[in-house]
Deep mutational scan, measured.
Amino acid sequence: MAAAAAAGAGPEMVRGQVFDVGPRYTNLSYIGEGAYGMVCSAYDNVNKVRVAIKKISPFEHQTYCQRTLREIKILLRFRHENIIGINDIIRAPTIEQMKDVYIVQDLMETDLYKLLKTQHLSNDHICYFLYQILRGLKYIHSANVLHRDLKPSNLLLNTTCDLKICDFGLARVADPDHDHTGFLTEYVATRWYRAPEIMLNSKGYTKSIDIWSVGCILAEMLSNRPIFPGKHYLDQLNHILGILGSPSQEDLNCIINLKARNYLLSLPHKNKVPWNRLFPNADSKALDLLDKMLTFNPHKRIEVEQALAHPYLEQYYDPSDEPIAEAPFKFDMELDDLPKEKLKELIFEETARFQPGYRS
């Protein structure tokens, strides 16, 4: 834990890192770190609560700039109880001085990944967590956004079992017609939660990839272990087919990539493993919904509104309290091709509203 900075004593240090967030945020305490930044909790002297502050230093890398800009653009436009918001952003007053960006968010005690390492969940908890994931996802999908990296560590939890989806750095506007060349190379989302079509096709992607990830998360809540822990690309596919069985001819016809289709045709026939054999203690309604989410063919996979209306979630289902976005989200430009200098300018502009004396 960093010592509390005395008023006016300059930035606090946390594990050798400068955290320049005073005077409003003090009493910093280390939480963890990701690929390009550290997260601390801090005391907000204005709202009198502890908050989470993520320090991001992305400006050396085009990919990190892209992810940072995506996350900020999306989260500043989203407003939903099951999606983490941005409360404040701290950065230098000029673009030349801006080396880091500090993002202030609600402090959540833990995440689903940490929880599943230590606790076996009751059916009631599984049901409530799944409902909140789908409630947040309904809003995301209504904005025409794909999260693309749903996994237990991106689901934040607090002691009252509130759940918030975080990390929109890989999110995209849904565009089933656009052929994202190089899709697989830039697709760094965790393999275990990846839909089979991501490994088999490169053309376009749809909201059904997020539903697949939610199915993987439900299976993990039922058993405290990942359902498809593939060691590499082909191993991942083999794990999936080992449980779902061989795809039907109709399902194979959806695979545009001939090499991928021929690979699947070359494999020995596998039978589907019954879900109640894998999860003998699970609620039968939970397994019915799991089956509809972990469907090989993305066109037959359940959609988020149908999933919310499934009998497993009937005690929570309330369409009048499951809000959607006001308007579909649009990125003005494809960020993939922009140089990091341009992305830095866009991050600077996007964060201006939090600067003292800002006038829109």
Rank of each mutant, 00 (worst) to 15 (best):
D210Y: 14
R172Q: 12
E197P: 09
G136N: 06
L115F: 01
M13R: 12
R67Q: 12
M108E: 07
T110C: 09
L264F: 08
E109Y: 09
I209A: 03
P268I: 01
D179H: 09
Q105K: 15
S213P: 04
A352G: 03
W275S: 11
V46T: 04
A325F: 00
Q105T: 15
N297A: 03
V21A: 00
G357F: 08
Q315V: 00
E33P: 15
E109W: 04
I89S: 06
V46S: 11
N276T: 02
I95K: 11
G22T: 01
L252F: 03
N281R: 04
R301N: 02
D179I: 08
L290I: 09
R359V: 10
N158W: 07
A52C: 07
A174C: 10
P356D: 05
F168N: 06
C65M: 10
A195E: 11
P229A: 10
L155H: 01
P298A: 10
F296N: 09
R79D: 07
Y312L: 11
A327Y: 03
A219Y: 12
G16C: 10
A286R: 04
L338N: 05
A307F: 02
D179F: 10
T63E: 10
A282S: 13
I126K: 07
Y233P: 02
I140R: 11
Q306G: 01
E33G: 12
K330E: 10
V14T: 09
A219T: 13
N87L: 01
D175V: 14
S266T: 02
L313I: 03
R191P: 03
N82I: 15
K344Y: 09
F348T: 11
T295C: 09
I83E: 01
S57D: 04
G37I: 07
K114R: 12
W212Y: 10
N82C: 08
G357R: 11
R359D: 10
D124L: 07
W275E: 04
F183D: 05
G245E: 08
V101D: 03
I84F: 15
N82H: 10
L308E: 02
T63R: 15
Q105C: 11
L241A: 05
T295N: 14
R148N: 11
N27A: 06
C254S: 15
G204P: 11
I84E: 11
K300M: 14
L241V: 09
A325M: 06
S142D: 01
P23V: 02
L289D: 01
E60L: 12
G242S: 12
I227Q: 07
N201V: 11
Q105N: 13
T206F: 07
L75I: 07
K270D: 06
T94I: 12
I240P: 07
I89C: 02
L163G: 00
A9M: 04
G215I: 07
S246G: 02
P323M: 06
L69N: 01
P226Y: 03
N27Y: 15
I103P: 06
P339T: 13
C65A: 12
A195T: 07
L121W: 02
V173Q: 07
A219N: 06
A174S: 14
D283M: 00
N87E: 04
G357Q: 12
T160K: 12
V214W: 05
L294P: 04
L163T: 02
G245A: 11
K164A: 06
L130Y: 01
K270V: 04
N257P: 04
E197L: 08
L112T: 04
G16N: 02
I56C: 12
L234G: 08
S57F: 15
V14F: 13
F329R: 04
A327R: 08
M333Q: 10
Q355G: 08
E109F: 02
K344I: 09
Y113F: 15
D210W: 06
H310Q: 13
H178Y: 11
L116M: 13
L146M: 13
P58W: 15
P58E: 07
P247D: 09
L343S: 10
C161H: 04
D106F: 06
P176D: 07
E322G: 00
N144P: 01
P319F: 02
P274L: 11
L150W: 09
K73M: 10
L75D: 03
S41C: 13
W212K: 05
A2I: 00
I243K: 06
L116F: 05
R194Q: 08
W275I: 11
D318E: 14
N45S: 14
V14C: 09
G10N: 06
S202I: 13
Y25V: 02
E303D: 14
I90K: 04
Q306Y: 10
Q66L: 15
E71M: 12
I95F: 15
L163A: 02
I133Q: 05
